[in-house]
Nucleic acid binder design. Structure first.
Lengths: 206, 206
DNA sequence: CCCTCCTGATTGACGCGTCAATCGGTGGCC
DNA sequence: GGCCACCGATTGACGCGTCAATCAGGAGGG
């Protein structure tokens, strides 16, 4: 059955769902969540307006799914790094690397997640504060372990350090997303090491 | 015409304007920009609906003014610090201190600026990207000077370091705003030194 | 092998609530 | 008497979500 030509061929439900999700990423990335209409998603997905509501309960629910899919992978990755026998610094490097690679691999999706969820902690992000906070907590755990191991200074609240670390990374992504700092492949390659080094060693010469 | 007591006494225009701006801060902080109606601002300001449009061209224009007022002070403060004969580290401390003190002094205003402008870089913040970017640039300048003076490592792009520094601070404010990390007076007192030290010295013991 | 009926995927016009912004006024003050 | 601060009902656009109609493929009986 030819797909995409002529009258819409039937497809297995899961594929349709994916088709809509993928289209939504493109549209959200292009226009932002607030200014995309459900009709835009449907059009981009080559699907009828109503079908979006067949698979999702609302426009928010679409963004919802996109966020959960990716964020759960992030939490998993950080958690896994924490379980490994690496040094705290290596664990933080894994966390930073995962986020940066997510951007490298699928910049549109990450743009949507950062701009419309993570940084929009008022409106939509509020729903996901708990998930987002879970990431901060995992990072704080790594910092705390580094302190117990005597590697990190212990005069700083791990939660505080965690916010600093994550904030630095997110700001870099934002800079790339908004074209404020260059984002060549090489920049992305260097970024991970640079953030980790900056946070872990600081700016001053030693 | 029961406007509190008797017919509304006329007030000098600038006072009315301020009255509306101050009310807007409270409402925006409480409900967020998107979910506050112009009617809410008018009510909070004890002013007629239409008067808001007498002094401002739109709801966005109100937020606009609030942002400009505070952000210009920020740019001024950083610029002034840069002109002073202090060390780069002291200059960065001034910048961090100004932002943190802004929050201490008027948390509602800073909440609005961070949540609805600075972090909302898609929708509304887009208008102010240039202003926001100006802050990054000033900070980058301080870093660059530190590098030229041989105080900071020079294997890191100043713009990159600037994003890291600002991102860390904004994330702290966000943490306070959303109640993710404690924000007692003491926390605020310590925060400035801690961010600067974390960024300038790093997490590892030396 | 064909016809028929059934299921559920798919469609898109429409209803309805929500606000931003306008506009025709009113009244005090100089 | 004219100007200007001030008022708030009204308008009109906009977009989400609904829902009744349509259509395609498959199962089963003849």
């Amino acid at each position: 059955m030819v797909q995409g030509v002529g009258p819409m061929a039937r497809e297995a439900a899961p594929e349709r769902r994916r088709q809509i999700l993928d289209a939504a990423v493109r549209v959200f990335a292009r226009q932002g969540f607030h200014s995309t209409r459900v009709a835009d998603i449907a059009e981009e997905a080559d699907v009828a307006y109503g079908l979006v509501y067949h698979y999702f309960s609302s426009k928010e629910n679409v963004l919802d799914e996109l966020f959960r899919e990716r964020w759960s992978l992030l939490l998993e990755a950080i958690n896994e790094a924490d379980q490994s026998p690496s040094t705290p610094r290596e664990k933080l490097a894994v966390a930073a690397g995962f986020i940066i690679d997510s951007y490298r691999y699928d910049p549109e999706l990450m743009k949507v997640i950062i701009v419309d969820v993570t940084r929009a902690a008022d409106s939509f992000g509020r729903t996901h504060l708990e998930q987002i906070n879970a990431a901060y907590t995992l990072i704080a755990k790594i910092v705390a372990e580094g302190q117990e191991a005597g590697i990190f200074r212990d005069d700083i609240d791990p939660r505080f350090a965690s916010m600093t670390f994550y904030g630095a990374i997110e700001q870099l992504l934002s800079g790339w997303i908004f074209g404020l700092i260059p984002a060549t492949d090489q920049d992305l390659d260097e970024a991970r090491g640079l953030v980790v080094r900056t946070i872990c060693e600081g700016l001053e010469k030693r």
